[in-house]
Design a protein around this nucleic acid. Structure first.
Lengths: 224, 224
DNA sequence: TTCAACTATATTGTATACAAATAGTGATAG
DNA sequence: CTATCACTATTTGTATACAATATAGTTGAA
């Protein structure tokens, strides 16, 4: 996408994620255009994208609002993501090639290194975790699946919460990655499916636990 | 959406479905605007929607093309749709209310009436079949799920093929609807899940069979 | 005082003009 | 004859002005 449209997209998205634009707040095109330093045209493009990704909703008369995620929305998200990522893992197991497997191993090792120190390197963990899942999706080789999962993994709840991690969660996540590698190496679709389903499910419960203790002081986090 | 944008969307979509715009063909915004009798602005909106629904693709330099669906794309579509609709059916089973159940019964009866004559009333069948699935999705009560399924059920392959039906397919489809009603009446999620998975899977095989006999003279059809 | 209708204002939708980028074409040099 | 570079034409991206529509505020009458 083009420069101005991208800038508007990124800017609005980050304002939503940072809380500068609160859930339920109405957002006018003109106001956003000014705030982004571009005209309404690219803002409208950006809003359409954000709407497709469920960051933004519209009322019956086409006015835009920051999407308000209820707890059940969040659960829905994890549920769908688990289903689709497990499916992707199953497909990937029988289609993955040598290069992709090597890249997965490399990610997995980077993740292990990132969490072995006294102070875990969370940014490195996150980056490689992200790449790990992206490679699996690539190996699954389904445009439609990629299209749909792309809408889920980037959603507010995931980003807003994926900022702080406890040691145990990081280690468990990393261990599940190793298991996935084993399943892929054996080309075992059902195994990969089961591990991935559990992987995402665990992340959901970790999030739910963090949410239940409703500490609003910092960000709680979940590693999937 | 607004009038001009809707017109452009419908017009382009029907041109793709009718074959007036062939798969792989490049489509320029200006040309479409003229053809739709509107300016480029609403055409651009329509193209974004069609792109999200995978009717249209873009190359690396943002030029638009009519999406070209390979056989594996079609299989992907059925696979995902089966997975998501089965999930929807499972959710619906435990959430459906009396009104929704009554509407499902009414649809089911209309479908039975439509196929009992010597000449099946296919348009009525299709209309009620569509409503039937929509009610289940409504009962599933998940915006994300609706959002995703909406992108699948309306896709080219479905529409392009859902035009002619043999008696046996119609009857089997209708029978599966009745089974779903039974599962819903008993609030049996796993049962509903299994029936729906089979329902969509059967539709896929019916399509694959029709495709294998590659009769290009008319439209083959599949009732899901 | 309340409700309704109307006006004013704010917001989104559309058209058009212009800017930027890309691909196609032709000429020229190796 | 091929390949590369420059130029032109085509296509998409952006800005702005204007039109249509919805909301909110105000005024009037019952």
């Amino acid at each position: 996408m083009s420069r101005a449209s991208d800038r508007a997209y990124g800017h609005i998205r980050s304002m939503i994620l940072s809380g500068a634009l609160q859930p339920g707040a109405q957002i006018g095109e003109e106001q956003l255009a000014e705030s982004c330093g571009v005209s309404r045209t690219p803002v409208r493009d950006a809003l359409r994208r954000l709407q497709a990704e469920l960051f933004v909703t519209r009322n019956e008369s086409q006015r835009c609002f920051v999407a308000d995620w209820s707890l059940s929305d969040i659960e829905d998200s994890f549920e769908l993501r688990g289903m689709l990522e497990a499916h992707a893992a199953k497909r990937a197991a029988t289609r993955i090639n040598w290069d992709q497997l090597e890249r997965l191993k490399s990610c997995s090792q980077a993740i292990e290194r990132a969490i072995e120190g006294v102070i875990p390197d969370v940014p490195t963990f996150l980056e490689n975790n992200r790449t790990f899942h992206a490679i699996i999706l690539e190996a699954a080789a389904s445009d439609r699946l990629s299209n749909m999962l792309g809408r889920l993994v980037e959603q507010p709840v995931v980003l807003r919460t994926a900022l702080q991690y406890d040691r145990q969660n990081l280690a468990r996540s990393s261990h599940e990655h190793s298991e996935l590698l084993a399943a892929f190496a054996r080309r075992d679709g059902p195994w990969a499916h089961a591990i991935m389903a559990a992987h995402i499910r665990r992340a959901f419960h970790a999030y739910a636990d963090a949410h239940a203790s409703h500490r609003e002081d910092g960000q709680q986090g979940v590693a999937a």
